[in-house]
Design a protein around this nucleic acid. Structure first.
Lengths: 334, 334
DNA sequence: CTGAAAGCGCTAACAT
DNA sequence: ATGTTAGCGCTTTCAG
């Protein structure tokens, strides 16, 4: 049987309230007793019961994290950052993988509600009205990560997707490329898809390269889809000498396709990715890409959620973190 | 304010015990009242407070998962499997990433203890006496995944590492290779390292190829280390035409090194990996590898833990799942 | 079949 | 400074 506060009190020869005080406001207890209590706690390996505490504080000191796809390496960095912040702030973390399934996500919100998590961070997903309503009716605070909401006042942390895409495409243009394609996210349900396409367009326009505007094909998150999308893209536009991909995984799919077609990267076609996954540096060729600060985003999201949970609001609502272009081997001067 | 059982009782015009019965033993409540209570629950969106429940049942209906490195894709499959099993069995899942840090792991065990998780699954790690003692003194049931313990009676689910390594090396031998090297795990702290080396040795011996026995270099889990290890290996044994890697990530590191040295894979050197990560199929060349059933392992581990939690023991202590050789592009006839 | 009441382990207000 | 006690929301005897 796990020892209770009573066992500690008995062993130390004090009342249970004194034990409680030693744990919560130690300075209010006279040294002699405090020491005795601490020894008893030590000896019994006593740990307060978190259910009892939760019942009183109405807090679980647990945060929830909802991610769309645990097999996507993008989230690993976010998880690490968030977990480190949670340790610092005294929270436990509950990670749930929705597999991009709406019902599953809704079920997880229920589970979070039942477990009374103090707050939730939502990764990458669009906030559908259903989610929003549910969260509001449960009164669970939440923040968005690599996502944001235009309709609702929801705190978020992300990068500037439009600018990041712009930077990537501009880089390709500066390399001398004139025929540039893009592999984007399927637009429905994608929050970062549209702004990245806008960035592509802006860079093109600025350089008088608008004729590339329609040279985009979309893929659904995975390598294989990007492979297929690349096939469509190059079938329709064989003149392409560069392609901008909105995810490193897409870049790998494209390069894989090109490889199968015996087209050299970067010899004949330059490819730039997005995210800077750990894999970007392991792939052959190493990927030129836009680096997202996944770790910091996870960390900041947790801090922001903490702020929201404790103060009821956040200083800045929509927060943008810095991205960076990393030039490696998959791109080359035209 | 979240509605309580009292609110439901009031609305339905019954006592709180009746409400409780409707939730736990509905057949013991007369239909008319039961219906009224259910309607009230529905209307108020009532959810029982899990703290109060936990206080009584001394159960959290939560399982803990300890993994060494969330950025290693190997664990993604395990997480998915375990999470699906948890949904089926009615548990929540708490995933913690130890970053292979002993103190951090110990701290997580404390956190699990405090949160009163019903059981823990330990991924890949050796069970040091400290861990074992701690877990025993907390009386938290636990199972090992892709690991096992010779000293203690701990349930585990893994593959047959020796046999898997044997299969991989034998495959290389059948391809006609006579000079075969290996990139293994650093032996201290590795549970699967030694048996995989044994499998390597056995295949070698069986074919009269014992002269390769010492052609092994070790790496510490990451791509970069494998790259360096490959450098050492090929510097010492330039005659090698094949190398067996105990992880896909190592295989990628080796191929990357070979690429930088302008040695063709599989043209000049064949490489076989281990795990069959999703990446194995995205890499160039696609990896020939030993496939581990990560998803099933996670799933089984959760089921086994559930069995242990509910019955106090498991039918079979150490469970082995099937591996499979997947032949792709990184290996070729000598 | 149903209600009243005890109690799970803890905190905080109230006495002393 | 410290002990006593009333709950937090729920389940579970125990009466009726």
């Amino acid at each position: 049987m796990k020892p209770t506060i009573r066992d500690v009190a008995k062993m130390a020869g004090v009342s249970i309230s004194t034990v409680s005080r030693v744990m919560n406001t130690p300075e209010s207890v006279i040294e002699s007793k405090r020491v005795r209590v601490q020894q008893a706690i030590e000896q019994l390996q006593y740990q307060p019961n978190s259910f009892a505490r939760g019942l009183i504080y109405r807090k679980s000191f647990t945060l929830g994290l909802l991610i769309p796809d645990i097999e996507n390496m993008y989230y690993a960095g976010i998880i690490r950052g968030m977990q480190d912040a949670c340790i610092k702030l005294g929270y436990s973390l509950m990670i749930c993988n929705t597999d991009r399934d709406k019902n599953r996500l809704l079920a997880y919100i229920d589970a979070f509600h039942e477990k009374q998590v103090d707050g939730i961070v939502f990764a990458s997903d669009v906030i559908f009205p259903e989610y929003y309503e549910k969260l509001m009716s449960c009164k669970i605070p939440f923040v968005l990560i690599s996502s944001h909401s235009d309709e609702y006042e929801v705190p978020s942390v992300e990068i500037d997707d439009e600018k990041a895409a712009y930077d990537a495409v501009k880089f390709l243009i500066e390399l001398g490329h004139r025929d540039i394609g893009m592999i984007g996210f399927n637009h429905e349900n994608s929050i970062s898809g549209p702004p990245r396409y806008q960035g592509f367009l802006r860079a093109l326009h600025e350089a008088g390269l608008d004729h590339n505007a329609e040279k985009i094909r979309c893929a659904a998150h995975r390598f294989e889809h990007a492979y297929d999308a690349a096939h469509e893209l190059f079938t329709d536009y064989p003149e392409l000498t560069a392609v901008f991909c909105v995810a490193d995984e897409f870049a790998m799919g494209v390069i894989s396709y090109l490889k199968d077609r015996n087209i050299l990267v970067p010899g004949q076609v330059s490819v730039v990715g997005f995210d800077n996954l750990r894999m970007a540096n392991m792939f052959i060729p190493k990927l030129t890409t836009i680096s997202q600060p996944m770790y910091e985003m996870g960390y900041r999201a947790a801090e922001k959620l903490h702020e929201l949970v404790t103060t009821g609001s956040t200083q800045v609502l929509r927060e943008k973190l810095e991205h960076k272009l990393i030039v490696r081997e998959s791109s080359r001067q035209r």
